[in-house]
Write a protein that binds this DNA or RNA. Structure first.
Lengths: 343, 343
DNA sequence: CTTTTCTACTGTATCGTTACAGATTTCCGC
DNA sequence: GCGGAAATCTGTAACGATACAGTAGAAAAG
């Protein structure tokens, strides 16, 4: 046996990776036959298929991705376009885990395509389209009228979005029911005797801002509560949120209930409330979304609604694959309901 | 044999994505010449190179990855092996963002290779090696004697680890100085007059458990404090941590200081302390690591040390690329120091 | 004026796969 | 026995890139 040194850079060849040629040689068949046998083509004999499959399994044959990709154009890649800007609580990782979970059972690899949401959001999508580097794309931070959706739709690239759009294009998506969340949040606060309610809302250009607003307004109307305006969003820095809330609490318009669209925001809001000398559960109540159950640990008084990002990841992964397989987009749209704490 | 079309003759420019052939046609050169010109090979004329580069830029030429990969074996992929098991605070995403940031300026794509840390950790690494699906690998949750490191080293696969190993193999890594963290944490607690100190430690099989332990023990000795044993680790569920801490606080051996190796753990520890009727900053002090500044928002009394995972991601990305380029591993090892709050 | 050397460029084979157009054998029906 | 269909299998040519072994022409050497 020859002793190879492992040194800088080069990968040592595995004990020679098997190709179709290897199997062809071992079975005495042609390369084409082997290829077709492994795809279960109708013009290959049953016994031959069996033999080929046995040898392939035995050798641990895995098709060479570069070969397939070059010949067929199929990349076997799903691209996840991610904003790499600051994120306080890492819900992104849960989504990545969910997608990974689904892709693990398939031939697809997950490629992270980063971008900064201060830059042109079309850049990463255009890159993927122009270089043909993925069979399907998942995007988040969806806007009501999203140019990325427009572009991918137009170019026929299968994709799924985290969050709906509102542009007359039917496409796969998964969304959290922010409308129900906000509406029910108001209801829960009113049930606790609260009537003057503030909302820490999502950034205005994202789609779920709209749903949150609609739900909130509906809730106010339906359960007869009043809105107390809060000049901050979940994209505002925590320090600013805290200061704004503190000032609001000290003002004559202080709310007695508050709805928070993010858990990081909820923490800052709570800090503002306490800085003003008030206490959750006593002077004021809060309903907040959370992706992990930290909030409940921090302040059990917070009514914490769970948004399951791992589930969202799974749904998005499944949807984009199904879309690649030609399933109609209308069948690949799902909305998950807020999960309320027991009792 | 048939006369094939040659570069001088009848090649039609593709209306699709440009290839070397397109550029060859437009410049009137051979495909090989174009390829070599774009690589700045020494045997191509300066003026020719200039012309080729101009046309390539103009067409927005990007080499076809499948072509390169098939011919050269170079994948231009960095694989990040990630545990997809529950993670409370999402530090993983920060690491992903850091790596992405570095790779964005290169030809490398980032592929997420998931695995469950309850399963054999070698599976994803073996898959990458056997299918040759990456040029470099980044792994986390490094163990003192890590079989993945052993395997990749042996097969000559460039890699970088988050966390050191202790197995006589020199390889790129980035690590947080957990020893300094634990030692200084004890010091900070002693400075506050605390003497009976407990440690919420990392899971025993991971490498940084050792460093944390050494630092902690050194601190105890150096600053004359006593260890109060705590039967839990950061991998224990939050509910269990809380119960354990609560019981400990009620016992005659209650600590008056505690060091936490994770922020999620710190939240549970705090819950336990409060459940037992004690208060941070009054009866007991806590030093804890955090990857985002949530802890400080939740309980400003917690002395929160910042561990920068985005920075770690950047370092790991740079290290693995440098290793692929043949830089010696000894030059690709970095340790980042705990960042203490001001004052 | 020939030979050698050098510069600048090019054709061919190849990586592993699949589409496509045969090719061979078997098995019918009549 | 024969035409023809069915059932199986196979060779060749790509996909886009690069390694390698050239070649043509000019310049330098003799």
């Amino acid at each position: 046996m020859d002793n190879k040194k492992t040194s800088g850079g080069g990968i040592q060849p595995s004990p020679e990776r098997p190709t179709l040629k290897t199997i062809a040689f071992m079975t005495g068949l042609g390369i084409t036959t082997v290829s077709r046998a492994l795809k279960d083509a109708p013009d290959i004999g049953a016994e031959t298929k069996e033999r080929v499959r046995m040898v392939a399994r035995q050798l641990g044959y895995q098709p060479n991705r570069a070969g397939v990709r070059l010949r067929t154009g199929k990349t076997n890649v799903i691209a996840l376009v991610l904003s790499i800007d600051e994120e306080i609580m890492g819900f992104t990782s849960h989504m990545v885990f969910g997608i990974s979970e689904v892709l693990a059972g398939t031939q697809y690899h997950l490629v992270i395509t980063p971008h900064s949401h201060s830059k042109d959001p079309l850049v990463p999508v255009r890159y993927i389209l122009d270089t043909g580097s993925a069979d399907g794309v998942i995007i988040s931070r969806t806007e009501p009228d999203d140019p990325r959706v427009e572009l991918m739709h137009q170019r026929g690239m299968p994709f799924a979005t985290h969050g709906r759009t509102n542009m007359g294009i039917s496409h796969p998506f998964h969304d959290f029911d922010n409308e129900a969340f906000a509406r029910e949040a108001v209801r829960a606060l009113v049930a606790k005797g609260r009537r003057r309610i503030a909302l820490l809302q999502p950034p205005g250009k994202l789609n779920y801002y709209l749903h949150t607003q609609i739900g909130f307004q509906t809730g106010l109307r339906e359960y007869q509560a009043q809105e107390v305006p809060l000049r901050a969003s979940t994209d505002t820095t925590l320090a600013e949120i805290k200061d704004t809330v503190e000032a609001l609490m000290r003002s004559p318009h202080a709310p007695d209930g508050i709805v928070c669209s993010s858990s990081a925001g909820a923490i800052a809001v709570n800090a503002g409330i306490e800085a003003a000398g008030f206490h959750l559960g006593h002077d004021i109540d809060m309903v907040a979304k959370q992706s992990t159950d930290v909030l409940s640990w921090i302040r059990p008084e917070i009514i914490a609604i769970h948004e399951d990002f791992r589930h969202a990841g799974r749904e998005l992964g499944k949807a984009v694959i199904a879309r690649i397989d030609g399933i109609e987009p209308e069948l690949l749209q799902s909305i998950s309901s807020p999960i309320w704490p027991k009792g």
